[in-house]
Amino acid sequence: MSGFLDILYFIVPISIAYAAPLIFTAIGGVFSERSGVINIGLEGLMVMGAFVGIVFNLFFVDTFGAWTPWVSILAAMLVSAIFSLMHAVASISFRADQVVSGVAINLLGIAIALFSVKMIYGKGQTDFIQEKIPRFNIPFLQDIPVLGPMFFKSVYGSSILAVAIAILAWFIIFKTPFGLRLRSVGEHPMAADTMGIKVNRIRYIAVIISGGLAGMGGAVYAQTMTNDFGHATINGQGFMALAAMIFGKWHPIGAMGAALFFGFAQALAISSSGIPFMQNIPSVFLYILPYALTIIALAGFIGKASGPKALGDPYIKGSR
């Protein structure tokens, strides 16, 4: 039994570390889609965040010292929020197909990031950062037997922030007037409009929030996992966050749960060789697990209990 516990002590912290960026990004997706705007561009926004986070960290490490990773996350948030404006303008004001616009954002994100990296560093990837996101031991909680070492010892500060953001997002979406407006705009924009809610303004805000959060997710991933930026840094994390959002039924806490699960699946995939009874499972099954599970979940128990009603429809005043 103690062997099993050792495995958990080993794998749970890795899972949480992998989950944190997904939590940020998936909650970003929740904001956007709750307002009725599909955001497949999460991947591109995350790439942008990772790129800005790393480059900012490299350039300003002398100025900000130990605070550098945090300021980098902030910078990534700002840049990705601005970048997401493109998606907002296209899909809200210009009535573009939101999926196509999202695809363009994905392609553009990676293209701009790689173009800039080559321009600045003259090669395909950046240097490694010196100041990473610090790990903390949470006082008192870390002394709890069994759970303490699993969840509260040497956790990345960003993971704590991710959980806090998830709870905050739940509060905003379900307990504040803004959240009520956000949801109403995504379910029935015409009804919301008649009640005097500015549909398009709410949607703009929602998409920009999603951009900011995806940027944070990207910066967190890059500054905890890879510590540099190259073409394969993000490689599908944004799509996995999208899956986590759907898996979590467009609910912040649900999305967090799904992200934790996907984090666990990724942790299993990379560390299965170190776990006795899993050595014989080919790692490919663990790699495809999150994706296969998403498909099964969509086909099975989530099925039609689907997203916001007006998802994907631009709001055109006066039309029925």
């Binding site: 493109m86 296209a90 210009f94 573009a96 363009a104």
Partner: peptide, 9 residues
């Protein structure tokens, strides 16, 4: 792609 998506405008 982005501009084609914005074809409406």
């Amino acid at each position: 792609i982005f501009f084609v998506a914005c074809g409406y405008i």
